[in-house]
């Protein structure tokens, strides 16, 4: 299978640099699949699971925020956070989920706190789904 150069760069450093055969990421307008020879394309990323196929093996990651850019066959994924499934701290995500749910149930939470709790809950759910291998 034809491969393409893929770079995953986050503010914390380089998460992946090498050849990949396939990439599927969640953009703000839905899942987007990239294979070798894709047209030049730029899309902002949403929150969700990313899949990378390298050397015939599928790898999953939680990928949130940032952008995807495909220019002249070079794919650059620039998310704010990118965590491989095996690196996700499941216990921490579950703790964050429980805390966020409690915040949302509380009647006294302010509008801003609700929005922040919602965002936290969504991040926690994405992490849990990726870590436990279900969509």
């Amino acid at each position: 299978m034809k491969s393409f150069p893929l770079k995953v760069v986050t503010p914390d450093g380089l998460a992946f640099d090498g050849e990949a055969e396939e990439l599927v990421v969640r953009t703000t307008s839905g899942d987007l699949g990239i294979m070798a020879g894709h047209v030049n394309c730029v899309a902002p990323l949403g929150m969700g699971r990313a899949m990378v196929v390298t050397e015939g093996k599928k790898r999953y990651a939680a990928c949130m925020g940032g952008i995807l850019s495909v220019i002249a066959g070079e794919v650059r994924l620039v998310p704010t956070t990118f965590e491989w499934a095996e690196n996700i701290d499941l216990a921490r995500a579950e703790g964050a989920e429980a805390r966020a749910r409690k915040m949302l149930e509380d009647k006294n939470t302010s509008q801003i706190e609700i929005r922040m709790a919602e965002a936290r809950l969504r991040r926690a759910l994405v992490r849990e789904n990726v870590a436990s291998g279900v969509r």
Partner: peptide, 12 residues
């Protein structure tokens, strides 16, 4: 360069 902006240039 011809670049496809998804969903649109402004949104991106």
């Amino acid at each position: 360069a011809d670049i496809l902006y998804e969903p649109g240039r402004r949104e991106v």
